[in-house]
Design a protein around this nucleic acid. Structure first.
Lengths: 367, 367
DNA sequence: GTTAGCACTCCAATAAAACGAGTGCTAACA
DNA sequence: TGTTAGCACTCGTTTTATTGGAGTGCTAAC
């Protein structure tokens, strides 16, 4: 006969997981029997534990040791917790007061802001954290400015909504004069103005080239460079903080091999992006991925909590927090909610008041 | 009577250090007695070792274990090695052929170049490496371009020698019109053009403000922003790679505490800059700092080799390699020489041919 | 269905023993 | 006087044994 997860089993499972989150040690029946809301002897607990194990929610590291949660156990726990949180939020929404933004005073530069956020998270959670710079696919172009540096080189400055600025030096084969540059300026701005970066695709560029007619060759070069500057994928940066926090959790750091692999993963942009990007945003935008669900041998003992922030105008990015499987999901989800809310509020649609100075990114100063 | 370091002692010291560099284990007299250029019994070696210990060049981790080099021992070894290297280079200079630049094909972006260099070093040395983005104090200004974004905001684009580009959005209290901006453009360019960033100090700015007269208030704001954009210290970036290489050296990683501290140091910009900046460039520009010489408790078991690269036009930066005290100094110095030579040659004065696309840095794309 | 009791398991911590690389010293030798 | 063989001794490392204790599963009684 199939066992099933009744109320009492769920209470016991919660007790086991909560205790394990705190201690990191396998938890035994006696410990649970002392739990306030339960009033059962250790023997009874043992029987229930045996059932929970049969259900695949907990497991024994070795015969006759206490139990630890299995990935499935964590999963259940996290899902129920997230559901609860959502309900809570729903209920509070009406009564919500604009809290003072303690964490983030407006900062002039996106880069600094992101770095400060990621550090804030690392310090307050004691886990390893990361954040991507915003991606701008849906951002609208404000204007393009071409300036002559000298014969043979021109500087293209592209400004988009949110004062996102990109620069690119274009090296020309043929000489050029100011009039031609002026003409191109007008052409570019009249045709591209107001389009989103997504919309300025190869087709648009091709059409522009055709229209250009006479200086076709020359314009072609410029357009290619501008298109390139606008749409570069590799612009995405990932900032990390608190990678060394993993040393605080013996199950991650006692094995040097493992620790090295983990820290190594934090050095590389690509694996981090994979980690953040795999799952699409859904629901309230907070995702928890546990252990082997990550499909990453180095991280099989870790969990990752990801969230998205949305600054409006098509500017959005992702945040990730990496810790041991026994991370304090509750706290992490809470803090992430807080932070993304603040980001959304301060810079986002709702806030509306301001977008100046945003998006200066790694290049308020473009060396 | 004072013992002194005769030829034989030096040979033995070299043998000890070389062996220790390879193995990382204290080396005993018997091992050394088997050395090819030496033809002595272990007993004799023991006597000599005793003398070397008295001279402070080697030491015993505990009674009746083999010897390991002391900081002073390393120092002597490194200094003599560097001297030899210098002589070699001097001798080869005349016969020097322009080697093909295998390592570094011209890359469009400084940031990518630096990242690739620092990774190259990490992979090839197996140590942790870092490199600063260039600093531009002696760089000459090419031009400043102010553009109107909308009423209330203007974009200042500053271009310096080597096509170093910086952007800054300036938020204005008072409205402004195109004519005023045009006027300011002319004023700025006529006065600042050709000056180095060092020369555009507060004095120059103050004088400009005075001359401006009428729109003094408005110009003042713009000038402050431009001055700020030009001279920001915080622009210096540090790229690192291979931090996890330290896990390859048990003396650095066996103690979790220590490993954590070291990796942590690599997460922070500031300590790294301190590490790189403390010593001024001198001689051929390669510096070795050993153990406690670093004045950093976390790094007391490390050595750091630093070098400078000079791309001409006042654009220069630093490279640092961090490893255990028993790092392969010889190899590291060699590789560093190669890399800095290539950087100097490709972009530097001698190369002369080109400086385009340089210095796009973290902000060819200034978000 | 719950609980007390008890034998059993297995990890972790501690202690004891065996090992071995390397030294310092002494005495003999060229 | 410098070099070498020999030997007792030191001290960290590794191996093996011993013990302790937390926790289980099962049985029998309530």
């Amino acid at each position: 006969m199939e066992k099933e997860l009744d109320d009492r089993k769920w209470t016991i499972l919660k007790a086991i997981i909560k205790t394990y989150l705190e201690t990191g040690e396998p938890v035994g029946s006696r410990t649970i029997s002392k739990f306030p809301d339960l009033n059962l002897s250790s023997a009874t607990i043992r029987n229930e534990m045996s059932d929970l194990e049969e259900l695949g929610l907990i497991l024994q590291p070795h015969t006759s040791s206490g139990r630890i949660p299995s990935d499935a156990g964590y999963r259940l726990y996290v899902d129920r917790m997230l559901a609860e949180k959502d309900a809570e939020v729903e209920k509070m929404k009406s009564a919500m007061v604009q809290k003072e933004a303690v964490l983030i005073e407006r900062q002039d530069k996106m880069e600094l802001l992101l770095k400060s956020v990621v550090r804030y998270l690392a310090v307050n959670t004691n886990y390893a954290t990361m954040i991507t710079s915003p991606q701008y696919h849906r951002t609208k172009l404000k204007f393009i400015q071409l300036s002559v540096i000298d014969e043979g080189q021109i500087l293209a400055t592209v400004v988009a909504e949110g004062n996102v600025v990109k620069n690119r030096v274009i090296h020309m084969e043929h000489g050029l004069n100011h009039d031609m540059v002026l003409e191109m300026n007008i052409l570019l701005n009249s045709r591209l103005n107001g389009l989103t970066i997504e919309e300025i695709n190869l087709g648009t560029i091709a059409r522009l080239k055709e229209e250009a007619g006479i200086h076709s060759n020359l314009i072609s070069e410029v357009l290619d460079a501008v298109a390139d500057a606008i749409s570069r994928e590799e612009d995405v940066e990932v900032y990390t903080s608190g990678a060394t926090n993993i040393f605080k959790y013996p199950e991650l750091s006692s094995d040097t091999e493992k620790a090295s692999g983990l820290i190594g993963a934090f050095e590389e942009k690509h694996p981090l992006l994979t980690l953040l990007g795999e799952k699409e945003t859904s629901g309230n935008g907070i995702q928890v991925t546990i252990g082997r669900e990550l499909n990453n041998e180095d991280m099989k003992d870790c969990s990752v909590v990801t969230a998205s922030y949305d600054m409006g105008g098509g500017i959005y990015g992702k945040i990730g927090i990496v810790g041991p499987k026994r991370m304090d999901y509750d706290k992490v989800v809470g803090i992430l909610k807080e932070v993304t809310d603040q980001l959304d509020r301060i810079y986002g649609k709702s806030g509306s008041s301001n977008t100046d100075q945003i998006g200066q990114g790694p290049g308020d100063n473009a060396y």
